[in-house]
């Protein structure tokens, strides 16, 4: 068992070599903490206890220092989330163009609320701050993919596609 009794997730060799590459970019290893967390989370799905320890070891800091950083950044998740993370922007530009309706629509269709995950683990939903997609408002990101000029219909189509296993 890892940190806080979580299940230990494996870290792939590919990820490990990516870690080495990233660390080499900086004069100080700890600079790599956030990138490593992000790349690690991309592979594992969340920031696992093992990931924290692995990163701490690699950049030569104590686990608590990694832990401090994690808490600061809103994209890092300490617990598993859904395969498709719907991040709906409701900040001003999007709000003015119907973002709240999009958010409410997602809640209805996915049957979950802010920062929740569907029982099948397929979807998570999150209301997020400005995504830098203001001119394509209302917008959201599903994982790293942008979806803009959203309408409830577009959201429905996307959910249907993702449910079928589309990307």
């Amino acid at each position: 068992m890892g940190f806080r009794g979580q299940k230990i997730e494996m870290i792939s060799d590919a990820l490990k070599s990516k870690f080495d590459q990233v660390i080499a970019h900086y004069p100080s290893k700890r600079s790599a903490i956030v990138p490593l967390l992000v790349f690690g989370q991309d592979e594992i799905g969340h920031v696992s206890g093992e990931l924290v320890e692995e990163i701490a070891r690699r950049v030569e800091v104590r686990p608590i220092e990694v832990e401090e950083t994690i808490g600061f950044y809103s994209m890092l998740h300490r617990r598993p989330i859904g395969k498709h993370n719907f991040q709906v922007c409701t900040n001003v530009s999007c709000m003015l163009r119907g973002a709240e309706e999009i958010m409410a629509h997602c809640e209805r269709r996915l049957g979950i609320g802010h920062k929740q995950t569907t029982a099948d683990g397929l979807f998570s939903l999150e209301e997020v701050e400005c995504l830098g997609a203001c001119c394509g408002a209302p917008a959201m990101q599903v994982n790293y993919d942008f979806y803009e000029n959203l309408t409830p219909e577009k959201v429905d189509a996307l959910i249907a596609r993702l449910k079928k296993g589309g990307a």
């Binding site: 600079s31 956030v34 990138p35 950049v59 890092l76």
Partner: peptide, 23 residues
Amino acid sequence: HTGAGAYECGEETALLNSLEGFR
């Protein structure tokens, strides 16, 4: 260098801290 979701990291000195691996 990637951030991970924090508006404050756009402030130049916060950016430097973040770049160094700190909060």
